[in-house]
Design a binder for these strands. Sequence first.
RNA 1: UGGGCGAUCGUUCAAUGGUAGGACAGUGCCCUUUGGAGGCACUUAUCUAGGUUCGAAUCCUAGUCGCCCAGCCA
Length: 567
Amino acid sequence: MNANPENIETRTPSNFLREIIAEDARTKKYGDAVIQTRFPPEPNGYLHIGHAKAIFLDFGLADEFGGKTNLRFDDTNPEKEETEYVESIQEDVRWLGFEWEKLCYASDYFGQLYEWALQLIKAGKAYVDDLTAEEIRQHRGTLTEPGKDSPYRNRSVEENLDLFVRMKNGEFPDGSRVLRAKIDMASPNLNMRDPVMYRILHATHHRTGDAWCIYPMYDYAHGQSDSIENVTHSMCTLEFADHQPLYRWFIEQLGIFPSQQIEFDRLNLTYTLLSKRRLLQLVQEGRVRGWDDPRMPTLSGIRRRGFTPEAIRAFVASVGATRTNGIIDIEMLEHFQRDDLNRRAARAMAVLRPLKVVIDNYPEGQEEMVDVANNPEDPAAGTRQVPFSREIYIEQDDFREVPPPKYYRLSPGKEVRLRNAYFITAQNVMKDAEGNVVEVHCTYDPASRGGNSPDGRKVKSTMHWVSAKHAISAEIRVYDKLFSNPNPSDFPEGGSFLDNLNPNSLEIVSDAKLEPSLADAKVEERFQFERVGYFCVDRDSSETRKIFNRTLALKDSWAKIEKKAAG
RNA sequence: UGGGCGAUCGUUCAAUGGUAGGACAGUGCCCUUUGGAGGCACUUAUCUAGGUUCGAAUCCUAGUCGCCCAGCCA
């Protein structure tokens, strides 16, 4: 990305990660080596907003210090990993605006890792254990009790070597043996109680195929992979803090490049679930339309929803990094997205729930074009022509036959402005058999063309509109939060996180009326529908029928007033 | 109960022994051809108890509370 360090300095406060790196750079802890980081996802699912923070930190911090960042797939478990995911991950990282130095795979290092395992066995630091998974668990002890040595712990180097080579050669079935590091079964840190380094898995790996039937565990692969890549600062989330002693142990035993692990807090958001397992469940059970459903917190979902990489970067930058675990208000994310879109999104007029307005004194058959700013925030965006005629649509919410207090919009006898067009005054209404208002008849002031009256008369309200004759019809998918509970994982005994699903997270408006210029909108193009919200064109659109996703509603102070009045 | 980590406005991030500040949210006012945006103002915080110090959010001690760890997952 084209990061501007000065800008980042002034825009975001420092954090402990930046300070550690700055200090290491200053003291030349790594000599003249450049700052090297890595973003190490396991290709077993789609990236989500939580990963955006890690990506921003890994890439952003390295960049700030003139360093490099590798994208490394931590693909040590063939049973869960797929090429589909390695592709989507690359796409998502690029979409966020980052480019990696090298594309790496832990599986690239399987050979080296194997050689190092041999080395550790020869040094008497690793042994083959024939205990079952269950027995290993029992020998591990508990949080308060030390573990017990495996009866196989003191095998000879020769026997261990022989057994391990045969494990590698496929002589033993899955689960029959493992290679373990020989450390300390009484360590208060469970990770140091002779952790498993290799397990036998006769599974086809998405890259190495059937070349291997033993696969390294995370703990044995991660630090060494960092070391191979000369990673200076290996940043990961807090739950790995207990693994750090082991991370260092392997590097020290092997005498290889001393990468250092630093942990920071995971990103948590209100109303949002970031557990891969549960996200997968939502997809598999059809609770959402897929990984890229616009309600999903996945990067692909957020992108389809209309969020921008700029806003996400600004958001994660503001959130910073600490070692405290908190939960960030989703409104913070929404704020950064509105802020970005407000500056950049072209405006358009669209009526989601149309109510027909007939301007009785506007000549029948007449039509005209009015000049409209594409973005009042950005004069450079220019203007466009929007057709106006005798019959228009306004939002149902913008008319009340009996206006409540503080209601500024259209009501009988009230004069309002049609944005960029004319002042109109409501005269009378037509109703259907049930008494619903189906048409409002108004008169307009021809002198107010453009939206101002020469006599300086003021109106309280300005409303958007679409010419009925020229409007195009479109489908609009109005999204709301996927969960109605701020903490979706909080459910009563016997319940499920699914109970927290918001039943109204998707509302489909099938016949919205849009200004005709929107007929040319391209997939993913973003707009602000004035007074309504931010929308983008969904890829489900066809040549003849547009489908828009609502990214976010505009802040609505009238809704607040109404709510307050309702008590 | 063992080990590790942490604790500052409602939320989040700063303050690195020297005026507790910003952002989000909230409230009020101003402005407005989007009840949007913008501007101004306001409210609210250093977990507790001791100690060190001229001076402590910061250092020390003890306590309290929270998170993480007992996969042949990462």
